[in-house]
Amino acid sequence: MANLPKNILAVLIAFQTMLFCGVLHASVITNGDFSSGLDGWNDASSTGTVGSEGGAAYLQSGSGVSPFSSILVQGDDGSFSFNDALLIAADYEYLTFDLWQISADVDASETGAASFDDSISLIIYDAFDFNYDLYLAPFDVTSVQTSFMVDITSLIGRSVALSFEVSDENDGFNSKFGLDNVAFLKSIVGPVPVSEPSTIALFMVMLVSLVFGNRKFKK
């Protein structure tokens, strides 16, 4: 590219910028909005339950105490073989999702002696090397649906599983959490996501004209 005439090089750079400018865009995680129930997701719960209602998923703790009460997974960590691992494509920098607490009902099987409440967290399991696993602390959720964003740049190019997990503490309650809008995001600068075919055709005409015009000038 260093040997190209300066005017052609300038057009190439401008075209590359035009192609890749845009705002945050989401890649496709299967049924990340739960519009098709739990299709694409897998239940790995212990004493709790997972399900879908009102266009969102829920994870609910069960009776007694369990650190893995309810678990909802998409992808594969290399061992539980639910479905294909999720590949973190190049330039995808974030995982985003919505969480909120739906309810907290009395659990008579618990004494309420715990100093911690039931909680929901996320673990991103790497399919080939557990050293890349991301253990994310329990999220501070309320009754208000709130969006969370997690930096996943350390996992670019790697295959993973997403595991949303509810820990059932001895707090005297069964908690129910909502989950929705799970997606990968990438960040690109500028307002235009993709150039239209007519724009690409115009660029090709400009490039050909510059090439032949440059040759004629040299003669």
Rank of each mutant, 00 (worst) to 15 (best):
M1N: 11
A2L: 09
N7T: 12
N7I: 07
N7K: 13
I8G: 00
I8L: 11
A10N: 12
A10D: 15
L12T: 01
I13N: 13
A14L: 14
Q16F: 01
M18H: 07
M18Q: 09
M18G: 12
F20T: 12
V23D: 09
H25I: 04
A26P: 12
I29V: 14
I29K: 10
T30Q: 14
F34Y: 08
L38Y: 07
D39C: 01
D39G: 08
G40M: 05
G40E: 06
A44V: 02
A44Q: 10
S45N: 04
G48V: 09
V50A: 04
G51C: 09
S52V: 04
S52K: 04
E53L: 08
G54N: 14
G55M: 05
G55W: 00
A56P: 08
L59S: 05
S61T: 15
S63G: 13
V65L: 03
S66P: 10
P67Q: 09
S69N: 07
S70F: 02
Q74W: 04
Q74R: 14
D76V: 07
D76R: 11
G78H: 12
G78V: 13
F80W: 12
D84L: 08
D84F: 03
L86D: 00
L87M: 08
E93P: 02
Y94E: 10
T96R: 10
T96C: 00
F97D: 12
D98I: 02
D98H: 07
L99R: 12
W100M: 06
W100C: 08
W100Y: 14
Q101E: 15
I102E: 14
D105N: 13
V106M: 03
A108N: 11
A113E: 15
A114S: 15
D117Y: 04
S119L: 01
I120W: 06
L122W: 11
I124L: 06
I124A: 02
I124S: 03
D129C: 04
Y132E: 05
D133C: 03
D133G: 01
A137Q: 14
V141T: 15
S143C: 00
Q145I: 03
M149R: 15
M149L: 13
D151E: 10
T153K: 15
G157K: 07
A161N: 05
L162A: 03
S163I: 00
S163F: 00
S163H: 00
F164S: 01
D168M: 00
D168S: 13
D168K: 10
N170F: 01
D171S: 06
G172I: 09
A183M: 02
K186V: 00
S187E: 13
P191Y: 06
P193E: 02
S195C: 12
S195V: 15
I200A: 09
F203G: 09
V211M: 12
F212N: 12
G213V: 03
K219T: 10
